[in-house]
Amino acid sequence: MSNIGLIIEEKAADIGNFLVGRLLPFREKRAVGPFVFIDHMGPAELKDYQNLDVPPHPHIGLSTLTYLLEGSIFHRDSIGNAIEIQPGAVNWMTAGKGVVHSERTPEYLRETDKKLHGFQIWVGLPKHLEQSEPTFHHTEAEDLPEWEENGVHYKLIAGEAFGKKSPVPVHSKLFFIEIKTKDAQNISIGKDLYGEAAMYVLDGTVDIEGNHYGSRQLLIAKDTKLCEFGMSENATVYLFGGEPFEEERFIFWNFVNSDKERLEEAKVNWHDQNHDAFPLVPGDEEEYVPLPKSILNRK
């Protein structure tokens, strides 16, 4: 019997002036461990007149993880951080009771051709941290654990696995792992994982119990402890998962919480532009993403 419990095909989602491939949430699988939302951005070739511009928008009850493979994004937030995200680095912002941030093409790239490729991820917070003060942490690429074993290259982007720990300050037991091959390899890592697990095939193919899976597919494991697969040459996969929360997490627009009343409060506060709940973003105060009318009165 196959250890694959669900196969999710990447589906296009419009985030304004940019299309992304949405992996989570999915109607048959709302979360994998604490991971509640994953967008695969690109790969996109942007002309000199095309730029990423996501104006200030709010979050509650989650941590955002931005990880780029190509290109650059300039991050600003209401805590006061302003930093460029480059490939291999990790931006980890914990919204807690409320944060606002923007994501744009850096000024020095706005009139040149450029590329953009990476992941935008939301990780739910433990219930006792959902109303915490917002925080931000940037981890440079060279600070992430990387190693080779039997011709396979591993990188631990966030969390704990393989007896190693990423410096990204996560709030629950989770893992986000990059695995790359030059030659075809068989991988058996179930003993190193825990909780729930999913695999995203970026490049190449994987073979699981005689079945082949290609790129832009998300594979959900039935049993994390049975995580064994073959990888083709020049393949790249990402494994993510961890211990799920006891309580269900609800999502409305950019808000995540175990308490629906908190979601309603956040919707009203953002719609009314209550800057006590959602402060302005220094250096990016002139515009914001309005609350979609379609969700204003939706419970």
Rank of each mutant, 00 (worst) to 15 (best):
V123M: 06
Q120C: 09
E103C: 07
G124Q: 02
D113Q: 14
F119V: 11
T94R: 05
G118H: 05
I121T: 00
H117T: 07
T94G: 04
T105D: 05
G98I: 08
L129N: 03
K127D: 04
L125V: 04
R110P: 07
R104K: 13
T105Q: 12
F119H: 09
H117P: 07
T112R: 15
L125S: 01
G98T: 01
H117E: 11
P106I: 14
I121K: 01
I121C: 07
Y108N: 14
K115E: 12
H117K: 08
G118E: 04
Q120M: 03
L116N: 06
T105M: 10
D113I: 10
V99C: 13
P126M: 05
L109H: 06
E103Q: 08
H117V: 08
I121V: 14
G118N: 11
D113C: 13
E103M: 05
D113R: 14
K115I: 07
V99N: 02
V99R: 00
G118S: 02
D113N: 15
P126R: 02
K97P: 08
K97H: 14
R110W: 07
R110L: 09
V100K: 02
Q120P: 07
L109W: 10
W122F: 14
V99K: 10
S102Q: 03
E107A: 15
R104W: 09
G118A: 11
W122I: 03
T94P: 02
K97F: 10
E103Y: 03
S102W: 06
Y108H: 15
G118T: 03
H128G: 00
E103N: 08
E111V: 12
I121E: 02
F119D: 00
S102I: 08
E107Q: 15
A95L: 05
H128K: 12
L109E: 14
W92A: 02
L125M: 03
W92P: 00
T94W: 01
P106C: 13
E107P: 10
K97Q: 12
V123R: 02
E103K: 09
K127E: 06
A95G: 12
E111D: 15
N91Q: 01
P126D: 07
D113M: 13
K127R: 13
W92C: 03
T94Q: 02
V100I: 09
H117F: 14
A95E: 04
V99I: 15
M93H: 06
H128I: 01
P106G: 13
G98V: 12
T112L: 15
Q120N: 00
H117C: 07
L116W: 03
V123P: 00
R110Y: 10
G124Y: 04
V123I: 15
K97L: 08
V100D: 02
R104S: 05
W122C: 08
L129Q: 09
R104Q: 12
E111Y: 14
Y108K: 14
L129M: 13
A95K: 05
L109F: 11
R110K: 15
G96Y: 07
K127P: 06
Y108S: 14
E111F: 15
E111M: 15
L109Y: 11
G124M: 08
N91S: 13
T112C: 13
T105F: 14
